[in-house]
Amino acid sequence: MYATVEFVELLERSENLGRMIRDSEVMAAYNSSQEALYQDSETKAKIDAFTAVKEQYEEVQRFGRYHPDYSSIMKAIRSKKREMDMDANVAAFKIAERNLQKLLDEISGTLAATVSETVKAPRSGAAMKDSGCGCGSGGACGCAS
């Protein structure tokens, strides 16, 4: 591919947009909440405890209700998830993550609309969700998502 003036300008604008996102208040809030998430020993302990129970949960899921520890693991994972989700650092991180995703969705929607009205762009964090069928429509096609 040959580098044209238009292509070089497009790359420069893309890099500028990336820098603007990286330097935004939304990204700063995300980075600081992520840092707080991993710096606080209590929060880290809750995340580690949840991760350990989640591994057991995944093992139990292979056998479903027939696994001898099904009930205890199901109760434990709900309990650990609630403890983790109620942590102030985890809650702040989730809010910052949602705000960053919203910003990225708005930008991708604007870019897509600039190209054409028929270009599809992820909405409401759909890029981070698995619809199950691979169509990428987020279940809009009527598939089992």
Rank of each mutant, 00 (worst) to 15 (best):
M1C: 05
E83Q: 04
A127E: 11
N31G: 03
S131C: 15
N99S: 10
S145G: 06
S32F: 11
E59A: 15
I95F: 06
A36H: 05
A36M: 07
A45Y: 05
E59F: 05
E55A: 15
K94R: 14
A127R: 08
D87Y: 00
D85P: 00
S108K: 11
K81W: 07
T43I: 04
I77P: 02
S32A: 14
M84D: 00
E58T: 09
G139Q: 00
V5H: 10
A127D: 02
A144V: 12
E117K: 10
A36Y: 04
K81Y: 14
F7P: 07
E35A: 14
R123G: 03
N31H: 11
I77F: 08
A140T: 14
K80S: 11
P68S: 05
N31S: 10
L10C: 13
K54R: 11
E9L: 10
A92T: 04
M20V: 14
E97W: 07
T4W: 02
G125K: 01
D87W: 01
A49H: 01
M128K: 07
G136L: 09
Q39H: 11
N31R: 15
Y57K: 13
I73N: 00
A91H: 10
D105F: 03
R13K: 15
M84N: 00
R123P: 01
L37P: 02
R13W: 09
Q39D: 14
E6M: 06
T43Q: 01
R13Q: 13
K75F: 03
M86A: 13
K80G: 02
